[in-house]
Nucleic acid binder design. Sequence first.
DNA 1: AATATCACG
DNA 2: GACGTACGTGATATTT
Length: 929
Amino acid sequence: MAFGKGHHLHLIDGSAFIFRAYHALPPLTRKSDGLPIGAVSGFCNMLQRYVEGNAGGDVTHIAVIFDKGSHTFRNDMYDQYKANREAMPEDLRPQIPLTREATHAFNIACEEMEGYEADDIIATLAVQARNAGGRCTIISSDKDLMQLVGGGVEMFDAMKNNTIDVEGVEAKFGVGPDRVVDVQALAGDSVDNVPGAPGIGIKTAALLINEYGDLETLLDRAEEIKQPKRRQTLIDNRAQIELSKRLVQLDENTPLTFTLDDLEIRDPDPQKLLDFLTRMEFRTLTKRIADALKVEAPTIPDPAPAEDAPQIEAPDFDKSTYTQVGTAEELQTWIDKIYARGYVAVDTETTGLNEMTADLVGISLCVEAGEACYIPLIHKANRGDDLFGSDDLAEGQMPLDDALKMLTPVLEDPGILKIGQNMKYDAKIFAQIGITLAPFDDTMLMSYAMHAGLHGHGMDTLSERYLNHTPLPIKPLLGSGKSAITFDKVPLADAVPYAAEDADITLRLWQLFKPQLHRAQTTRVYETLERPLVPVLAQMERHGVKVDRDTLSRMSNAFAQKMGALEAEIHELAGRSFNVGSPKQLGEILFDEMGLEGGKKGKTGAYATGADVLEDLATEHDLPARVLDWRQLSKLKSTYTDALQDHINPDTGRVHTSYSITGASTGRLASTDPNLQNIPIRTEEGRRIREAFVAEEGKTLVALDYSQIELRLLAHIADIPELKQAFADGHDIHAMTASEMFNVPMDEMTSDVRRQAKAINFGVIYGISGFGLARNLRIPRAEAQGFIDRYFERFPGIRKYMDDTKSFAREHGFVQTLFGRKIHTPEIASKGPRAGFAARAAINAPIQGTAADVIRRAMIRMPDAIAGQPAKMLLQVHDELLFEVDQGAEDTLIDTARKVMEAASDPVVKLDVSLSVDAGTGSNWAEAH
DNA sequence: AATATCACG
DNA sequence: GACGTACGTGATATTT
């Protein structure tokens, strides 16, 4: 039956798929010969997912459309068309023909045409489909295709998972699809190098087109335009605008050599498809598709090890080879294997995620890829959902004490390397029962040292990316929500494969990463900045900080009262009651019901009601000001005075945070459960929460913080003599900047002027923009830009640093700290606003990252330095360390700790600026700071 | 599960 | 009046 009513054609923009796949994935190579295949892999995955997602839908016809060659009829019209395109990356070029092959392998129509862009073919097909009475969905978010939308044609952005219809086009261009080319002709397109009219963007263009109806009328009647500059632009550039229109206008009459009927959906030939995937050596995808096609997955042989890059031969994952260890004899054979080898991958299973309260349930070991065991210790005989089940232990387990007696010498043997994934967790679990795990390697930290900025470092991510293997999920074992059980209730038949596999994966990752670490020259970072931090953090976390429940509870009550009063007042002012905590309802009250000006809706259609918006409104009305007060109290109560109480450990009376070593790409730590790195300090009311963080009876809290560490490092890294001098002279750096920028003598400096200068100094660290500074300081943009210009004039080295850093990142895909830590910035190569984000992140990363390295070094040296003193390090807050020390021993501690912190960069990095540390003491954190 | 908001350096 | 814009985090409440 010929294509017509009831048929639905899907057209995939092939180039868009390829580029997205290329940029979304790390540079994967085919194992056997090193051929880059990352983009092909991503392309196949996206294709597969797309086909899967539409199975059972109404799609009847499908095709992937590609560009062919770089020369098209548009180049004949205008030789600069797409002339500013960057050359295709070297490792992508060989993958292009493979994506065509992939499309054929999936048995999906694959079309291209010399001299035409993919967009023209798509346009022609879409129009044909529409004229035949059918529907067409274009899978692309390319704005050049938006002119086709309407009358049964729509677009689908597979990345954002949303459909672009006529309304979507109107939201983007301000005109309907039929006038999109007119707007594009005027606005031009920097990506495709379409000139358009200088100084006119989409907003203005839409305005003009809507006023005059269409481009031709507008150009004919250009004389009538009131704004002189705009009028002149249109008159002067008429030819260029008309050329632009011809460039953006898609050719709906491409001479196709096929018809819509040739695009009818076809089942793939399993043999052909699997052949292709096998040839590409896509292990995971081959398996998945074989499963979907209900045929046996072909095996992909591992390549022979090459001379220079030793490959470890690893068998496929096979959970049937994992064993359960239940007797002393069995355990002894494993211990013998460990001693024979000198290393072992270890993983613990516990009753929870909180190491302070979780109990050890079992231990898994792995000595060789595929050879792993699980030693269950306290698994229950019955599942937890059996209310009347006894607490009897399951069969086949060694007594806990016997097992630990045998394993402890191994775990503590200095000659046996223990390999783990996130060893801080296991080390804390073992520390609870008096076992000191050492020495160890940690695959999570190895990945962090090599891949920071590229992806997360959890086991699932690493296994999928580097072993092509999806680990067994824990969810089906534990359940979720109310019916969730702890691991000791998991039947051993399920527990053994799950637990043993984790150890197996860890060992394989270690075998893969260990040699790479050396090749990537990140060993020093791993050995000096990551691994030694683990025992230090484990100690701090286990020690915890004392938090006074009564203080928090009293504050909660006081906040609740104030909030109640404010809420009544707010409802009064609004004229009705509503949920003050709902930004959606608040926005409707403010902008719809009360009619306040300046309501801006975000992409979800809700009004923005952030603090900046409310502060502006506060000059007009009392309600926004009350809401701001209410929000502050609400935040303090829910996040701090209420929630912190729940984190007080009943056994220790202290709060034990958990630091994530790999959470922040720059090298900073992150603190969770609870986050103790964002306890309020900036407002008086919030600062009082720190009064609840107290020293134990007879002890004192000591806080030491680096003074202006990031600016000092900026002075060194960007090599700014004036800044270095100011630090050497002990001048207030923000005041000095203010003095320079605002022409205010130092002795007449007001705190407000200094505050502005401080914003500029920090702005520089963040990759400043006139817009950002203007918004931060609430000053006109031109004025902010003026400040920045003067700043760069005064400190030209700063601009050079920013430019140099950006080009380094573009060339290498990463930036580095003074200590060699690499922070990858893959998005720097992307187009559009993402590149801007990436550039600013690249500017910030060496500074923030070096500061993070410095305090890490101080922390690593601290335990030895203060050994013998009655003092404990409790918390780290990026540039601050908090200690608890016996009363009377404060001065000695401050003396020691300050020396360690100030000398932390020695001897690896010789800084041109000194590091300075401020100290404070008190019975609570508010006083000590 | 996503979004908005706001706490910190 | 092209465009969108400080860097790095985590927790909570509301809404989908």
